[in-house]
Design a protein around this nucleic acid. Sequence first.
RNA 1: GGUUGGGUGGCCGAGUGGCUAGGCAGAGGUCUGCAAAACCUCGUACGGCGGUUCGAAUCCGCUCCCAACCUCCA
Length: 504
Amino acid sequence: MASELTLYNSLTREKEVFKPLTEGRVGMYVCGPTVYSDVHLGNCRTFVSFDVIYRYLMHQGFQVRYVRNITDVGHLEGDSDDVDAEDKISKKARLEALEPMEIAQKYANGFHDMMRVFNTLRPSIEPRATGHIPEQIKMVQDIIDNGFAYEVNGSVYFDTLKFIEQKDAYGKLSGRKVDELMAESRDDLKNQSEKKHPADFAIWMKAAPSHLMRWSSPWSDGFPGWHLECSAMSTKYLGETFDIHGGGNDLKFPHHENEIAQNVGSCNHAGARYWLHTNMLLMNGRKMSKSDGNTITPTQLFTGDSPHVSKGYSPMVVKFFMLQSHYRSTLDLTNEALAAAEKGYRRLMEANQVLQEMRFTGNHQSGALDQDINGLLDRVTYEMNDDFNTPKALAVLFELVTKINSFKGGQLTMEGLTPSTFQRLQETFTVFIQDVFALENELVSAGGNDEFEVLDGVMKMVIELRAQARANKDWGTADKIRDTLNELKVVLKDGKEGTSWGVE
RNA sequence: GGUUGGGUGGCCGAGUGGCUAGGCAGAGGUCUGCAAAACCUCGUACGGCGGUUCGAAUCCGCUCCCAACCUCCA
């Protein structure tokens, strides 16, 4: 069941075989957060999705340069091209009485902490918009030189109408109808706007006197427009043409559409060849919205401090929950679904523990079982190659979980299984759970290793005492041990080869 | 209103012309001193109405509903 890596390209709306520009290497750019407030849970889903994509690409042997930016300037509140609009970071700085850079650092730190909690890898390069002002100024100049931008009172606007007329590259990604964009009357513009056409957008903005973040440029003391940083930084680190560009679905328009326009407008290359977009995270069937209370922060979700959940769900449970749906589908967060994910996560992790401690007991003959298991193992990769289908890959792992538990429980023997297939089973679980999905085992790691060693030793003694009581048919003592532990949320599991324990 | 993507069993969620998705919950059974865990078996499903087809949840048309974007947002 060999298969090629195929991915859904938003640009063509089709699944395409992935062929990198340079054999064996992948350049991937993902739009990172604007660091003006705590990271949104939906944001976490996007970055968890791309982390798995990054990890899977590396697992497939690609050398990946993963660039994920931090936007710390240019992103405006309200009408993005209104000269009076306030920068998100600046506004927050004013509200919290901090320097803009303090705001950016504070929320970037929070973002990084959360990414660590979700056990995601750091990108290869994490460039900041404020660290790339010269690059952005140069790109503005290039766009002006190519005739696709104009200056008004120190601000520079992208000439979308002219771009549409001369280049057949606008509206493709988002499905916007260019005719309709062009038909929009200039009368629609408010009188105070400097733009020639409603579809034009700022690439450099002159800063109002009160504006805190400002840099000198050929046009004015000002700051770069939102969209521009991604075009400039992706070009700098990945080149004028690169492989993959990712981001949330809501960024398709205008952000990504304008990014493409800037890339083509400055150097006549469209940038990314494959566009990947993650879908939205809903809660109780509706979009998360602060205004009507339908929202939850990652921290609230972990602690259970929210009316939307009956208890806290650990980061790995939340991550597993996310991976049980495809990144291109909306995902509905409900208390019930999380509770189900928690059980599923535990079942998977416990089976993996069992598997890694299991010893081969087969007869070294290759039979139907060998074929069966190898077929399932092939399928894990096959499903991941199909546009990173994590829910299907997990479904296959669960089919293998049943086999693993059956080996342990004695319902199935390893007859007909070869040692190499058994070893492959162990390796595949390790690779996908640890390296690709990066699900940490929270069942045993809580409290640190030293504490765990002590606790495990104590538990082994308690289990031994109970075993003796049971051997003596002293059911009262045996049950008292079990029930008391249960009250402490410690669960004993009697198996064929002894008793194991876990924390509920 | 325009653009994009959806509506699948009690819940979440894959799939996409004939072949069990999977997880959780539920029912019955095996195991067990009793339980739990594990294993086996089972049920109700593809929003509605038409059409194409030997056959449609899957394709086409119409219709209803939901979400996102078009305005800050992953």
